[in-house]
Design a binder for these strands. Structure first.
Length: 510
RNA sequence: GAUUCCGUAGCUCAGCCGGUAGAGCAUUACACUUUUAAUGUAAGGGUCCUGGGUUCGAAUCCCAGCGGGAUCACCA
């Protein structure tokens, strides 16, 4: 493969050869033991100076201020940056000054990994720095890193802002944009916090199939693949719900899974083809208990992450302090349209939608019409965490019928910042009712709804053995991360968001 | 999938009333043993996304394609 190398890349490759000629291995195999890091030194040196007389750390050279026979440089390790002070006669105590004059001054580039040993001191301007007594090249960088400089006030200059560059070369984004790195560290903190909460309540983390022969548990278009040995189609899961319920049938009281789901639909600021849902199912509980548990969980995550329940999101402040507001979906529609649709039949609903200028078609049943009304007129108003409860049975084929309200089911969705973040039910455990609901879905399919659910016979068989009353929930982990880390795009909470391929598939050369 | 904006040096961007490219940082060379967006002097670096068209002449105007962002549709 021919590569078109830039001037700077050629220069670095030439330096690589010179390094080898000088008898230095640019990619040494042996370990370099580290006993300190940038943040630890900056935070603790002042009060514990004796402990920082013989330190060893490693990282990338991210900036050099050369002064002739001495130099200051920025060393960036996994925790942050620290200034190092390299003086020729300290790293080259003998006659041979080549380590400084040749390697340091001529052959080292921004982005190279070095290991340094030395002692910590404070410069006369007051910056805690490392006075280097020995220096070792650990890995040569052959591509120039975009240089981002930060001034006294912390403003970044020439920050790489091109989203395409940042998403395709996330590794570079992470090196040069500390805020990006922080967001992903926060994402992991959020997930750890959730695990801690669930494990603390005795929940069991499980794994269920990603390859499924019937894509169930949600309404969405799946990705299709093929198993060669079995010669049959398989689908990437759109949800894991039906498998977790099978485990409740099997006798577990509380199971959970961080489920990577795949849906073959559009992409935008809040949708990526693969995304993560946390689902958990708890026996002998109902959706009221689930609302309280969700409040406790979110409150804990916010506290673990920010130390407060008030979280900044754009120009808004979201309060994750329990309890959250609750309103029925019909109540929400009445509040934002002035129309009471709770007693309407399908035709009246369709007429109401048309009156409110909402696009409808004949394939839409009662459930989809109510969903459209809520989505168009209500959803965006719920900025603070709000439970929308008691949905019509037609839009919830896996949910138990409401204990008192005919035509409704025991379901809630949690809205935050105008977006659905969680969806939960008192789970339907009546196998005969479940079969009828699936059959309703088949009718919708016949009417042209290509997202209606398939019948999963094995799931029905499991229910027939008996499933205890159960509460279940799915929480959109990516969206929750967006809300808690103040990001507007799902691409900024996924390390490697989906992109079209970069290189042309077909070469036009003859 | 539709509409719209964008694609110029390693990075950030200027140039866009058509006359074959500029700045800052980065790079190269020299100077400098406490600097910190280090500094000073000098130099090099571009298939102006790709392919067509208009024109004496295109980074600039037109068309198509590729890639990205935003909005909409589908959806979480």
């Amino acid at each position: 493969m021919e590569q078109n190398l830039s001037e700077q890349e050629i220069t670095r490759r030439n330096k690589l050869e010179e390094i080898r000629k000088a008898g230095i291995d640019p990619y040494p195999a042996e370990e370099f033991l580290v006993n300190a890091n940038a943040v630890d030194i900056k935070e603790n040196y002042e009060r514990d100076k004796l402990n920082y007389k013989d330190i060893s750390l490693a990282g990338r050279v991210m900036g050099v201020r050369d002064m002739g026979k001495a130099a200051f440089a920025e060393l960036q390790d996994s925790t942050g940056r620290i200034q190092i002070y390299v003086r020729r006669d300290d790293i080259c105590p003998g006659e041979d000054k080549s380590l400084f004059d040749l390697l340091w001054k001529k052959l080292l580039d921004l982005g190279d990994f070095v290991g340094v040993k030395g002692y910590v001191f404070t410069t006369k301007v007051g910056e805690i720095s490392i006075h280097v007594t020995s220096l070792k090249l650990l890995s040569k960088s052959l591509k120039p890193l975009p240089v981002v400089k930060t001034d006294e006030d912390g403003n970044a200059h020439d920050e790489v802002s091109d989203p395409e560059f940042r998403y395709r070369q996330r590794y570079v984004d992470l090196i040069i944009n500390p805020k990006v790195k922080k967001t992903f560290e926060q994402r992991t903190k959020i997930i750890n916090s959730i695990r801690e909460f669930l494990n603390g309540h005795g929940a069991l983390e499980v794994d269920t199939p990603v390859l499924q022969s019937i894509p169930g548990g949600a309404t969405a278009r799946p990705f299709i693949t093929h198993h060669n040995a079995l010669d049959m189609p398989l689908y990437l899961r759109i949800a894991n719900e039906l498998y977790l319920k099978r485990l409740i049938v099997g006798g577990f009281d509380w199971v959970y899974e961080f489920s990577r789901n795949f849906r073959n639909e559009g992409m935008d600021r809040t949708h990526n083809p693969e995304f993560t849902i946390l689902e958990f199912y708890v026996a002998y509980r109902d959706y009221f208990w689930m609302m309280e548990t969700t409040e406790k969980l979110l409150e804990k995550i916010a506290m673990d992450l920010h130390g407060t329940t008030d979280v900044t999101l754009g120009d808004k402040t979201i309060s994750f302090a329990a309890p959250f507001k609750r309103i029925s979906i019909f109540g929400a529609i009445k509040e934002h349209t002035g129309v009471d649709v709770s007693k309407m039949n399908e035709e009246e609903l369709r007429a109401t939608c048309k009156k409110l200028h909402i696009e409808v078609d004949n394939s839409m049943g009662k459930g989809k019409l109510v969903d459209a009304l809520f989505g168009e007129k209500c959803e965006s108003h719920y900025v603070q965490p709000t439970f929308i409860i008691d949905y019509p049975v037609e839009m919830s084929p896996l949910t138990k019928k409401h204990r008192t309200e005919a035509g409704l089911v025991e379901r809630f969705e949690l809205m935050i910042n105008g977006k659905e973040v969680a969806n939960a039910y008192s789970e339907l455990n009546d196998p005969i009712d479940q079969r009828e609901r699936f059959e309703e879905q088949v009718k919708l399919q016949e009417r042209g709804d290509d997202e209606a659910m398939f019948i999963d016979q094995d799931f029905l068989r499991a229910l027939e053995y008996g499933m205890p009353p159960t509460a279940g929930i799915g929480i959109g982990v990516d969206r929750l991360c967006m809300m808690l880390t103040n990001q507007v795009s799902i691409q900024d909470v996924l390390f490697f968001p989906q992109m079209r391929p970069e290189t042309k598939a077909v070469s036009e050369e003859a």
